[in-house]
Simulated assay, not measured.
Amino acid sequence: MSGLITALSQFTFDNEVQRVFHGRGGLFQGEEHLCLDWYPPVLLLTSFKSLDEPEQQALFTAITEQYHQQADSKELNLVFQHRSGGQTVTELVCGSVPDNHVVTEQGALFNVHIMRGQNHGLFLDMANGRRWVQQHAKGKKVLNLFAYTCGFSVAALLGGADEVVNMDMSKGALSIGKQNHVLNNLPQGVRYLGHDIFKSWGKLTKLGPYDLIVADPPSNQKGSFVATKDYERLLKRLPSLLAADGEVLLCLNAPELGCDFLMQQVSETAPQLHYVERIANPDIFADIDEQKSLKVLRYSMA
C-alpha cells in the first residue's frame, strides 16, 4: 500500500472534492484494486477485490496514522466500500458522514451520497469535462443527455449558458440535479426531462437546436444504454439536434473500448461531425493505458 500512503502523505486536505489515489490506473503494482477519494470531510476507500479482515485493518491503520500526521486533531471520517463478485458493501469505519453531504468542485456545490451504492452523485474523473463546459457555455443553449445529477448543467449555467435541457431516465437522479441547481442559486433557464432518450427525439427536436450537446451515457446498463449497440443509435440523431456551428462532447467510460471505437462510430454514422480534440482527464487519473481511461471527445459541426 506504499503508493496509496505516499499519495496520502502528499495530499492537501482542503475543501475541494478530489481523488487522492488512483490504483485503478495500473501504475502502482499490487494496488490496482484500491482508490481513495476525498469528499470533505470524509475519506472514501474503495477496494475492487475482496480483502480479508487483517488486510482491511492494515489499510485502516495506515490511513489513520498518516491522516493524523497531517490533520493533527481533526477527526478522521473514513468510509470503506468493497466491490467484488457483483456485490457492493459500504461501511463507516470511523467518524461520521454528514446527513446533507455537500462538496465543492471548482466553485460549484454538489450533493453526494457515499454511503449508498457505487455512484456517489458526482463522477470525479469528469472534472475537466465540467470545467471545459463552464468555460465554453456562455450564451449557448445546451442539451445534457444522460444527465444523471446534472453536473454538466450546473457547470454550463455557471459559465453563462442561456438555457440547459437535462434528460435522464432516472427521475431520482434528476431530483438530486434540481437540488444541485438550488445549491448554486441557479433556479432559472433549466429543464429536467425524465424520459428515455430513444423515445423522446420529437421532444428534443422541438426544444432545439442546441449549440452544445453533452452525451455521457453509461457504458453497459441494460434497459438504458449499452455502448456497443446504442452509441450508433444515438449518433444517428445528434447532428439533426445541433445548430449549424454546434459542438458535442461524446463521453465513454468503458475500459474495453478505446477512442478508436467511438471515432469509428462517428465516422460511419455521423460524418457531419468533425473531430476536434480529446479533453484530458485530471492528472490523478493517469492510466498505464490511456485508452482504458475515461474518453471525452469533442466534435464540431463547423
Rank of each mutant, 00 (worst) to 15 (best):
55 E>I: 01
218 P>I: 07
117 G>K: 01
171 K>T: 12
278 R>W: 02
203 K>S: 09
111 N>Y: 10
75 E>G: 12
64 T>Y: 04
59 L>R: 09
282 P>R: 08
278 R>Y: 00
104 T>N: 14
208 G>F: 00
98 P>E: 04
281 N>S: 13
101 H>A: 00
165 V>H: 07
74 K>R: 15
277 E>D: 10
286 A>C: 05
249 L>C: 07
207 L>E: 14
233 R>V: 01
238 L>S: 07
164 V>N: 07
113 H>F: 08
20 V>W: 12
75 E>L: 13
221 Q>I: 13
237 R>E: 15
237 R>S: 11
95 G>Y: 02
86 G>V: 02
110 F>T: 10
93 V>Q: 12
40 P>A: 02
143 L>Y: 00
110 F>V: 08
179 Q>P: 06
125 D>H: 05
279 I>L: 08
62 A>G: 02
66 Q>Y: 04
255 P>H: 08
189 G>H: 06
41 P>F: 09
3 G>N: 14
60 F>C: 06
197 I>R: 08
216 D>P: 13
159 G>M: 12
287 D>F: 03
58 A>K: 05
32 E>K: 06
12 T>N: 14
12 T>C: 09
201 W>E: 04
17 V>T: 15
11 F>N: 09
163 E>F: 06
239 P>K: 10
239 P>M: 08
106 Q>G: 08
47 S>L: 01
164 V>F: 01
63 I>V: 05
20 V>S: 12
288 I>W: 06
150 C>H: 03
191 R>A: 11
26 G>P: 01
221 Q>D: 13
160 G>I: 05
197 I>M: 11
112 V>R: 14
234 L>S: 14
285 F>Y: 10
59 L>C: 08
185 N>R: 15
32 E>T: 04
265 Q>M: 05
37 D>R: 09
192 Y>L: 02
111 N>R: 13
108 A>P: 00
183 L>Y: 11
168 D>L: 12
44 L>G: 03
15 N>P: 07
138 K>R: 14
245 D>M: 12
134 Q>D: 00
60 F>G: 04
196 D>P: 02
218 P>L: 11
124 L>H: 11
124 L>I: 02
19 R>V: 02
244 A>W: 09
288 I>T: 13
230 D>F: 03
155 A>T: 01
3 G>C: 09
61 T>N: 11
71 A>S: 15
41 P>H: 10
119 N>A: 09
117 G>F: 00
228 T>E: 15
232 E>L: 01
43 L>W: 03
69 Q>D: 06
296 V>M: 15
51 L>E: 08
62 A>S: 06
33 H>A: 14
141 K>W: 00
242 L>K: 03
161 A>T: 04
183 L>Q: 13
174 L>S: 01
236 K>F: 02
270 A>F: 01
22 H>Q: 09
215 A>C: 11
171 K>N: 14
84 S>R: 10
6 T>A: 10
132 W>G: 07
76 L>V: 12
289 D>E: 14
259 C>R: 15
160 G>R: 03
43 L>S: 02
257 L>D: 00
92 L>F: 00
56 Q>F: 00
40 P>D: 04
115 M>L: 15
221 Q>Y: 12
208 G>L: 02
75 E>R: 14
3 G>M: 08
73 S>M: 11
78 L>E: 04
